[in-house]
Design a protein around this nucleic acid. Sequence first.
DNA 1: CGGTTGACCAAGT
DNA 2: GACTTGGCCAACC
Length: 105
Amino acid sequence: MTNKYTPSPFALRCYELLKQVPPGKVTTYGELAHALHTKAFRAVGQVLHRNPFAPQVPCHRVVSSDGSLGGFALGQKKKIELLKKEGVRVQDLKIENFEETLFRF
DNA sequence: CGGTTGACCAAGT
DNA sequence: GACTTGGCCAACC
């Protein structure tokens, strides 16, 4: 396709921030939004849902503030597998040792 | 340009 | 402990 997708500045921010998350760790939409100096947790989620860079960008390292997996464009099942593969303990759609597994900026 | 949506969050029921 | 409501902000149509 000759048309190239033009990601929003906000989206690019999210991706850059996401790339700062090391493997084996996860972050939350709230933390991402806070790092972006905004309260648009939802906007982040929307951008990730439309994530043009899936799974090139570690969007699978983003979970809900409750430690739940949140969502995943390719399916939560895939998300769990990816996280487990990176060394993150996932217990039934929930992150184990969430506070310890959670990476903060 | 206005209304709807959404991979959310926190609090309340 | 699961479900509902309100709120908040950006992207999408």
